[in-house]
């Protein structure tokens, strides 16, 4: 199954002690690229660089900034190919942002679902 790992920033992360259970991001990427579990992934620039696009009533609206203003924002993503949710959870649980932020794991919606 394919899963999207959404990496979410946490503004309070700086106040927390580091957690020895997580990998360094380079090591994490190398490990899961090597095993074939990580198919792709990117860090994203912060919300200030976002542009929001909407079509409403036949009109194209282009605005500066993110669609919603929240203190947490998506800082990156990884696409995983895993046997099941437990494997995806185990991989996400050693990503450094599981300690420094929040990771949301979501299954892809297959064409036949």
């Amino acid at each position: 199954m394919k899963y999207m790992m959404l990496i979410v920033s946490d503004p309070e992360a700086a106040d927390r002690p580091s957690d020895p259970a997580v990998d360094k991001v380079e090591d994490w990427v190398a490990k899961h690229d090597g095993s074939g579990k990580r198919l792709d992934g990117q860090r994203l620039r912060p919300p200030e660089s976002a542009t929001t696009i909407r079509r409403r009533g036949g009109e194209l609206l282009i605005t500066d900034g993110p669609f919603t203003e929240t203190r947490e924002w998506i800082a990156g993503f990884d696409i995983l190919e895993c046997d099941d949710l437990d494997e995806a959870i185990a991989i996400a649980a050693t990503h450094p942002m599981s300690a420094a932020g929040t990771i949301e794991v979501r299954p892809f919606w297959p064409f036949e679902g």
Binding site: M1, Y3, D83, D84, L85, D86, A88, P107, G113
Partner: peptide, 9 residues
């Protein structure tokens, strides 16, 4: 949908 396995952990 989320692929929760049918397994003893």
């Amino acid at each position: 949908h989320a692929g929760i396995p049918y397994r003893v952990p």
